[in-house]
């Protein structure tokens, strides 16, 4: 993705979802987590990568290239080949968008037959295989979505996403609607499949602790901009950007002690994306003069780690 700007416009509001964002997957088997809160643009990132932005959203600037071709300029046919075969997506409500009158196995069979010339029996055999890989036993493959629990439906969705052996999988909050015990199962499943098949994984979430065992790199987003990138191991314990620092310090874990936790700045006011100041200015505890006059650029601070902050 280079220099992408996405905005959402209705009669009353105009919101910049992504502000000149650039991002790349340098090689295969590259796993990265995109962390951000509401309004950070993380979901928009995922949708942009699939060219799935719909009105009132609009990609205003920039381009997205995959293997040399610009996804944003593809026609319907090329896009269909691109989606599912090269890049596939698992999103939070996917488990609820399964067709209620189709058997789970048929969902996969259809996708297989649409995108390849497999015979019906071959496709069915492969579907059963794929479902088994995600932990759904053969005797349940012909059940309907409403007969499955949320966790099982999400497994089925993952099987669907893996059906055509894509190179990249984008997962947007796939476990947010699931209980914590089921979440752990799904994440283990995801991690193992990704590693076995040498996939690249882009995992979008608001919960940074989920990334610990799942991805190697992380990107932190705030109000439509990338504020920090780097290997997860470094980012979690030695954050560069004040926002990352804040995210980590307000994290509630089983080890947190109430007395150690301090009240955060209550100001959450919406800061307009401006060209002359840092986007985090209103909430940053380190802010100084330069931050109000000059917008910091996302640049490499240490080897493999970048941040957009004037402190470095």
């Amino acid at each position: 993705m280079s220099n992408v700007c996405v905005e959402y416009k209705t009669r009353k509001l105009s919101i910049t979802a992504l502000n000149h964002v650039s991002f790349s997957i340098p090689n295969s088997s590259y796993t990265v987590g995109i962390v951000g809160e509401s309004g950070s643009g993380k979901t928009t990132m995922g949708m942009t990568m699939m060219n799935a932005i719909e009105p009132p959203g609009r990609i205003v600037e920039g381009n997205v290239e995959y293997n040399g071709s610009d996804i944003l300029r593809m026609n319907e046919r090329e896009l269909r080949k691109f989606r599912w075969r090269e890049v596939s997506m698992v999103y939070q409500s996917a488990m609820n968008s399964l067709n209620p009158v189709k058997k789970i196995s048929d969902h996969i069979v259809e996708v297989l037959r649409e995108h390849s010339d497999m015979s019906r029996s071959d496709a069915r055999a492969r579907a059963i295989e794929l479902l088994d890989e995600v932990g759904i036993r053969k005797n349940r493959a012909d059940d309907y979505p409403h007969e499955f629990s949320g966790g099982m439906r999400q497994r089925a969705v993952i099987a669907l996403a893996l059906a055509l052996s894509p190179k990249i999988m984008i997962a947007d909050e796939p476990t947010s609607a699931l209980d914590v015990v089921v979440q752990k199962q799904i994440l283990s499943l995801l991690r193992n499949r990704v590693r076995e098949k040498n996939l690249s994984l882009i995992f979008i979430t608001h919960e940074i602790s989920l990334l610990c065992d799942l991805v190697e790199n992380a990107i932190v987003m705030y109000r439509g901009e990338i504020v920090e990138t780097g290997p997860i191991a470094k980012l979690l314990f030695d954050p560069l950007h004040p926002y990352t620092e804040m995210l980590l310090s307000t994290l509630l874990t089983l080890e947190s002690k109430k007395d150690n936790m301090k009240l955060q700045s209550a100001r959450e006011h919406y800061t307009q994306n401006g060209e002359n100041y840092c986007i985090y200015i209103n909430s940053c505890k380190y802010a100084f003069d330069r931050c109000r006059k000059e917008k910091p650029v996302l640049r490499e601070i240490q080897k493999g780690r970048a941040a957009s902050c004037h402190r470095w």
Partner: peptide, 8 residues
């Protein structure tokens, strides 16, 4: 996006 629909 949710910011838009949720406020109505």
């Amino acid at each position: 996006m949710s910011l838009i629909t949720q406020s109505l």
